[in-house]
Nucleic acid binder design. Sequence first.
DNA 1: CTGTTAGCGCCTTCAA
DNA 2: TTGAAGGCGCTAACAG
Lengths: 347, 347
Amino acid sequence: MAVRTPAREPSGPTIYSVAEAAGVSIATVSRVVQGTGAVSAATRGKVLEAIDRLDYMPLAAARSLAVRHHEALGLVLPELAGPYFSELLMGFEEAAAELDLSVVLTLVERDRPLDAARFTRLVAGVDGVAVLGGLLPDDVLRRATRQRPLLVVAGGDTVGFEHLAAENTTSAAALTTHLLDVHGRTRPVFVGDPDVAPDVRQRLEGFTHALRERGLEVPAPMGGGLREADGTAAAERLLADGLPADAVVCANDEVALALVERLVTAGVRVPDDLAVTGWDDVMAARYLRPGLTTVRQPVRDLGALAAHRLHERVTGADPVDHGVLATRVVLRGSCGCPEPARSAPTA
Amino acid sequence: MAVRTPAREPSGPTIYSVAEAAGVSIATVSRVVQGTGAVSAATRGKVLEAIDRLDYMPLAAARSLAVRHHEALGLVLPELAGPYFSELLMGFEEAAAELDLSVVLTLVERDRPLDAARFTRLVAGVDGVAVLGGLLPDDVLRRATRQRPLLVVAGGDTVGFEHLAAENTTSAAALTTHLLDVHGRTRPVFVGDPDVAPDVRQRLEGFTHALRERGLEVPAPMGGGLREADGTAAAERLLADGLPADAVVCANDEVALALVERLVTAGVRVPDDLAVTGWDDVMAARYLRPGLTTVRQPVRDLGALAAHRLHERVTGADPVDHGVLATRVVLRGSCGCPEPARSAPTA
DNA sequence: CTGTTAGCGCCTTCAA
DNA sequence: TTGAAGGCGCTAACAG
C-alpha cells in the first residue's frame, strides 16, 4: 500500500507564489510558462525571473486535471529478457518523447501477474495504453478499451482490438522452406509452444504451412517456453529420442542457443547432423560458432509505431485495425549456409 | 508538441456520475473506492454496482492533485543495451509495483540528450527520481533535488547526492590481481575510457591499484566506449602495435567479446597469448569459447533498492548518503582458468 | 454511517 | 496586454 504523507508539508512553489513574487496574476504566469497568449516583454521578464528564483515547476497532476490529458502513454510488457523488449521499449519511449509524452511502464513477470487493480491504475493515469499480446485476458483489454485507446502489440491474430505486429508466419515459412529446399532437410521439428505467445503460434503456423506445401508430415511441436532452460530441455528430449530430426526451428534465439550448446556437448554436429534456427538475432547469435541463423524483426520501429498510433488515437484519429512490419531472415552457419564475415551489427 | 484536445469530448464517468447513479454523495463513493471509512453493506453494494455498470475509474490526475502525491517514481536510464539496464529497470519496477507506485521511464540516447525541459517534465510528474550516474550534469541534478528526492544509481563517487551502486573498484582489483598472480600475466592493459561512465572509472581505478600494489608500471587505458564496435577497434590497435600486452581487462562484456572475436580471427590465442576479461556477465559471455571471465553485479537488487530508498525519502526518511552492493567475479576460460561446466544461469 | 464543503494547482474563457 | 473567476475530479475534514 502506498503510504500517505503524514504531515502536509509545505508544498513547493505554486503558480500563486510565482504570480505574487512577480507582481502579476496567475493567468499571466500561466501564459509565459506555456508560451500561450501575448505577454509584454517586461512582464515576461519579471515572471521568468520569479520562476527561476523560486525554482518553480508546474505540477503535472494539476495541469493534467485542467487540460484533461495526462500527456503520458502506458506500456505493458513482460519480463525484459533479451533484446526484443528492450528494443521495443526504446522505440516506444523515443517516439513518445518526440511527441512530448511520458511513458509509464508496467512489467508483468511470471510470478507476478498483472492484477486488475494494477492495470486499472495504469490506465487511469495515461491517455492510451499499448499492451504486448498474450499478456492480458481479452475481457480485461475490452474493459480498458472503454476508457482509453488501447493497442495490442505483437498480438498474433488478436481480434477485436487495434493491433500491430512484426510479420511472423511468412518468415517462418520461408525459413522452413530454406531448410527443406536449400539444405535438403526432410525431418524438421518446431521447438516451442504455440500457447506461450501469439508470436510463437504464428511461427509454428508458418512452419506447418511450409511442410504441408511440400506434402511433408507435420510433427507435433516440441513445446517449451522461451528461455535457455527450455532449449536445454528440448535438447535432452531430442537426445533421448535418438535425434529424430535433421533440423529444428526454434521459437527464439535463447532456446536455439541453449539447445545447440547441449547437443554439441553430446557430440551432435551442427549443422551437419542437425540444422538449427532461432528468432530475434540476439547478440550471442553472432558469437556462437557456427553463427545462428535467425530472423531479425524491426522491433524498434514496432515500438515507435505503437506510440504514434496511440497518439493519433488520443488526438482523435480512428483506429487502424491492423499493422504488420516486415522481418528479415539472417542466414548463418547453423542452418548449413556458409558463414558470413563477422562484423558488428549493421545498425 | 503535444496536441491539445480540439473538442472537449464528454469525459468518461466521474465520481459524480457514480454518486448520482447510486443515489449517494460523492464522499460515499470515494469511501468505497478507496476502502476508506465505514460504509454500510447496502450502500456499498449500490455504489459498487454503479461503478461496475458505468465502468468508473478514478482519474489519476485528480486524485494526485488532491492527495498531493503522484504515486509514481521516475527513472532515467541510458539506452537499454545489454542486460544491465533491463535488469535494473526490472528490479526498480518490481519494487515500485509492490509499493503501489507506477514508474515513469525516461531514456537518454546518444543522439538524444536529455534536455532540461524533458527532465523537468519528468520530475514534475513523480514523487522521486532515480538517475543513472553520469547521465546528467550536476547542476541539473542539484536543481531537481530542490523539488523532489533524487537518487543517483551507479554514479561512481558522485558527491553531494544520495547514491547507490554496485561495487567496482575492489572487484576490478581482484580481477587484475587474479590475472597477475594466478595466471602469471605481466603486461595487462585496461580497455575503456574512464570518462565514459563513473563505473568504468572505478574499474580502471581498481585495475591501476592492483598493478601499483605489485610495483608494476601502469599503462595508459586504451579508451573507447562500451559497445562492440569499440572492442573491435581496440583489437585493431592491439594488433597494429604487435600485441603489446598479455592480458586485457575490458570495461564490459560487449567490448571484450568483440575484441576476442577480432583477435581470434587474426590468429591470436585466447587465453594463451592473451587473457581477456569483461564485466556484466551477458548471455554471450557463456556461449563464447572459451567462456568469458567477467564480473556479475546484483543489478536487479540495485534497481529494487533504488525504488525502496526513493520511497523512503518520499515518505519522510532521511537520505542515506551511500550504498554499495557486492559483486562477484565469474571465472571462465578466457583468463586461463579451466572452463566450468556449461549450464543455464543460476537464477 | 452519510452528506456538505473546501480546497489541491493549473488552465481558460470572458471582461476590462 | 492583463486580471478575475469558474471549473477539472477527487479527497478529507467537519457536521449531522
